[in-house]
Design a protein around this nucleic acid. Structure first.
Lengths: 135, 135
DNA sequence: GCTTTATGTTACTGCTATGGATACACTAAA
DNA sequence: TTTAGTGTATCCATAGCAGTAACATAAAGC
């Protein structure tokens, strides 16, 4: 059911930025905490920047820092910034028009999936990024 | 966030079986409705059989049929039968012991993920397989 | 008993997504 | 002008998904 770990990495990144609130933190430094490479971190930072969660400065004294307070950020904000809001996948096989089940299942199952995803989103909006930081 | 479509296919399979309650339906027939191949269907049927949702008969008059009523089955039962209950993935990168964020994030984020997954599971248990069938 | 036809299972294959690695244009500080 | 960062593109190895074929096993019908 799972493939990408980008949401986990994004949460890690934001936590590092939150622990150095106000500073411009370099992607290399974040990569050291996540134990991955700086380019991958920057790709995710870029999505966060486009979503207005992070701001970045280029150049020698550059880096990234949080725009919003950790207490104003939720897991949902990150997932949404990454475009990872879907939790289920419908099969892509074409409908068999001669089978009533096949004709109807994608619509009804799609609504069921949406209901579950909605419940998950509600919960994700309750998960505050501040709560991920060490006490 | 999504990779496998097995849950969707399983729901499709169970819907077909539900529409022919009592009959032993052949994997080839189900595959025709899903528009995939019979072997893939059988692999999923096998998981459903092991979970006690479906029973199968070998041989010439063989096939699969539901053991439980569609009204007793939920989306959660299917996901659980397939071993697809996780919705999020933690990154596998090793912890950087010199960074307090790195040391703590997997634990706190894991709990956050579990909370969201739990909310999703609750909702999945409310989705009745009977509701996926055509009226 | 033999043939037919189904399941259960394995193995192989092509495709796609993921994340690691490198490179480079651009930019700002020193 | 040099240095050191971001933003972005490209390439690569790997892993997972689903399609396909194959085969042992088992049951029904002749």
């Amino acid at each position: 059911m799972i493939s990408s770990t980008r949401l986990a990495v994004a949460a890690h990144i934001v936590s590092v930025l939150a622990s150095r609130r106000g500073e411009f933190v370099k992607s290399r430094h974040i990569a050291g905490s996540v134990n991955t490479n700086a380019s991958f971190v920057r790709r995710i930072l870029c999505s966060l920047t486009r979503a207005g969660i992070v701001e970045a400065e280029k150049g020698k004294a550059g880096g990234s820092r949080l725009v919003k307070c950790p207490s104003e950020l939720t897991l949902w904000d990150l997932a949404s910034a990454l475009g990872e809001e879907r939790l289920f996948a419908m099969h892509a096989n074409p409908v068999n028009p001669r089978c009533p089940i096949s004709r109807g299942i994608k619509s009804s199952l799609g609504k069921a999936f949406a209901g579950v995803e909605n419940a998950a989103h509600v919960q994700m909006k309750r998960i505050n990024l501040k709560d991920l930081l060490p006490a």
